[in-house]
Structure formats: C-alpha cells, structure tokens
Amino acid sequence: MTRPIIILIIVLALGAVFYGYNTYNKPHTNVGKSEAAETLLATEIFVAFDTNEQAAMAIYSDKVIQVEGQLLSKDLSNEKEPQILLKGNGDEGFVRCGFKPTELSKVLALTDSSTVKIKGVCMGCNGSEELDLLGSKDVVLSNCIIIK
C-alpha cells in the first residue's frame, strides 16, 4: 500500500471518529441563537392545538416558536423549572412556558397582566377532556427565553 493511500485512510478514520464524537455530543437547541420558525400570538397557538392537535404537532412541535401574550401568572412551584402562564383561551387553556433556573431573575422581573414575548421549543399540548380532574389544557414551550 502506497504512503498517500495510508495517509488517506488515516485521515478518513480520524474524520469518522470526529464526526461520530460530535454527533454523539451535539448540544441541545440553543433557543437564544435560533431563529423562530413561527411567530404568533399565544391565543393563536392555543387555538391551533385545541382545534387539531395532530396538525398543530406537525407544524409546531420540536420547533423554536416565538409567542406574544398576556402574562397571567408565574408558577415557581418547581425550582427545577420556573414557569409562566400566558393567556390561551380563558380558563380552558394556557400557554405554559418553562425556563432554565438560570433565567429565574428575569422571570421574577416580569409583571403580571403585562404583554410578554417569549421564545421556546414547542413540546405539544398537555391535558385532555377525558382527564377531568386536570382541568385546563396547556400548550407547552420549554427552554424559553424572554424577548420582551
């Protein structure tokens, strides 16, 4: 085997190892650095899921979505993931946005009833009519950041 071929095989092998390592350790979606695939009102994304969940999953799930809506409340009951609720459809549904604990100070600075812009990864819609004890349905965004 000639020297150039050996070098080529070594380079290809190193490339394969490098590619495999990077693929195995690829980072989670960086919401802050990602362009929003869709920008819409919180009420609009809730209606989309409430009307046709399967169709909404195909459009929005796993994508970075920017929503604007009225902040109804902060839910800080789970210290592992501070959350806020945006108005979805009265008492029947909300858009629930989860943040990394490092974002807590920014979440605390939000004012109830104000209009906020949030960017996060859409996970789907939790709850259903059949589960009567659970009450409202929530469209869920995770790894959120506050735009405004």
């Binding site: 996970m123 709850g127 589960l131 004890l133 929530d138 869920v140």
Partner: peptide, 24 residues
C-alpha cells in the same frame, strides 16, 4: 418537570398527563 396530575381527596381518583417530548 411539567407533569399535570390531580387526585380527588374524596374518592382517591388519580390522573396524570405527561408530554413525551418534554423529557429532557
């Protein structure tokens, strides 16, 4: 960390709903 769950303190009826994609 966003699991919806509730129980009825009278009957003991218990419900959970969890989004699969939201497992990190």
């Amino acid at each position: 960390h966003k699991v919806k769950t509730a129980f009825d303190a009278e009957t003991g009826k218990l419900q959970f709903s969890v989004l699969i994609k939201d497992f990190e």
